[in-house]
Every structure is written in C-alpha cells, then in structure tokens.
Design a protein around this nucleic acid. Sequence first.
DNA 1: GCATGTTTACGGTTAT
DNA 2: ATAACCGTAAACATGC
Length: 296
Amino acid sequence: MPRPGRNTYSDQKPPYSYISLTAMAIQSCPEKMLPLSEIYKFIMDRFPYYRENTQRWQNSLRHNLSFNDCFIKIPRRPEQPGKGSFWALHPNCGDMFENGSFLRRRKRFKVMITSEHLQKPSDAAHYLQQQARLRMTALGTHLPQMTSYNLSVSQPSTFKHPFAIENIIARDYKMPGSLAFSTMQSMSTGYQIHNQLTTAWPHMYSGNMIDAEYTAYGVPLKSLSHGAQSLPAIPVPIKPAPASVASIPALHAHLPAFLCGSPQSLSPTSPTQSSPATPSPTSLLHSVAVHCQEVT
DNA sequence: GCATGTTTACGGTTAT
DNA sequence: ATAACCGTAAACATGC
C-alpha cells in the first residue's frame, strides 16, 4: 500500500513497485526497450521521490532487472553505441499485474518451459530486438539513441496495458486542452485526477493539496482494475503461435495502432501541447517519424 | 573510478 | 500460518 505521511505528494513514494516503474519506462518508448540510464531518467523525471537516495533505489532496480524473468537484457548492436544493454519486457509477461495492483504482482513472472518459443531470455531478446528494428524500419528510421522517451498516447484499439504509460499518464493528453508535464502544475487539471486518486487511495490523497507531480500520473483507475488486463502489453502474442516469430513482418499491421505517440508533447520538459484524441494513423506515423529523425 | 550487471541474504508486507 | 512478493543492502564481476 502507498506510504502515507508526508505533507506533500511530490516527495512521497509512488504506489508502484520497481517492477512497475521499470515496466512503465520500457513501455513508454516506441522501441519497448531502454538502457538502464534511460530507465533511471524516466523514473526520476516523473517521480520526484526518486530524485533522492539514488544509490539505494537504483541498486534495487538493477536487482529487479537481473532477478526477474520479466525483464530481458538485449545486447546493443554495433549501430547502437552506448553503455550497457537495453532492457525490455519479456513478451510473455503481459498479465503480471492482472489484479490491477501496481504494488504487488499477481504472481511472479517466470519463463515457462511449456512455450515452444521465447523460452530462453536470449530467444526473447532476439525477438524483441527484431521487433524494435521492424518498428523503426516501418517508421523510416533506425534504432534510436534513446535520448528521449516517447509515449504512445492513443490507439484505435481500446486496449491499454495496466501499467503501460498510456494508462499512467495518457488521460492528461486526451483531455481537451490537455497539458504537458511541464504545465501539469495546473490546479484545474490536477483537480479532476485528484478526485480519482482520492477514490483509490483516500488515505494518500485525502488532503486539500493537489500534488502537481502526482497528478501527472493520472491513473485511469477503471482501466486498472477492470480493463482487459489479460491482453499483452506489447503488440505481440502473449503465447506466440509457432509461426508468429517467423512472421514478424506481420507486425507492420500493428504499427499504426501502436506507434501513435506525439512525442513532442510527451517529453516531461516539453512545452504544452495537446494531441488529438484520435489522430489518423498517417499523421501519427508522421509525427513519430519526425521525432525519430530529431533524436537521431 | 564509475556504471552496469549478477547474485545472495534478510526482513517486511501481502495474498492465499 | 505460510508462501510469495517486495525493498534493501552488499559483495562481486565486468567493461569502459
């Protein structure tokens, strides 16, 4: 449960486990894979609590990355210079948080021997890297340097993964006249989200003060507890059919639906910008492609 | 030296 | 009550 006590929310520990936080970070970027440093950055940008005691929580986070099968280490390729490997979510770990709790998973994800594919982390890593390359190829660019993360803010499908960043913060971007992170200090915006938070965590959000940082997390609680949680977090089958890996190009069919972020409005430090609730796939792809060119 | 990554250990919390 | 999960600390290895 969230830790009550502090007067302000901004320095309060977020109600998410390290696994959740890491999953959020990974889900937030189009490639669905991030280096450790970017995971750190994502968390610190959004959760002021983690701007302190970095040694402590980062050690814990690294421990989680190594210890939990739901995270896969993906080696860098020669065209991807940088320190450390990329980290991705295992394709089969989509329903870890089926009960909607971000504090405690329903069960620990373990790589099952029963699956024909993606048994070994190396298999999944290869598979995921292929996916990332395909995504970038479809966008007319190559794998990014991970200088910034993007958020997929909407998609034609109604599915939103429980701890996908779409669910954590997307509602802010979907609001008419929605505000970007830098202006999430807005009390009017925060008020609506605050009401939801007080419903879920009354002991935590019962004060009059509305935390500007926390409002940015705007968790759509209904989707957390009643959504299609059993669906995959990423556009791949949870249990791929034998042919699925071989037919990876079929993922192109998912791209317009999935890579639909407006990255410029999603950077925590970017200026205020609203994004259309239902942008066309074409415009979405274009915006992503433009962004990818900017970061490369 | 530092960042990254792995592993073990232990105590607290939560679900069953 | 107990197992499972979580957070933390720490030791150690590796690569730059």
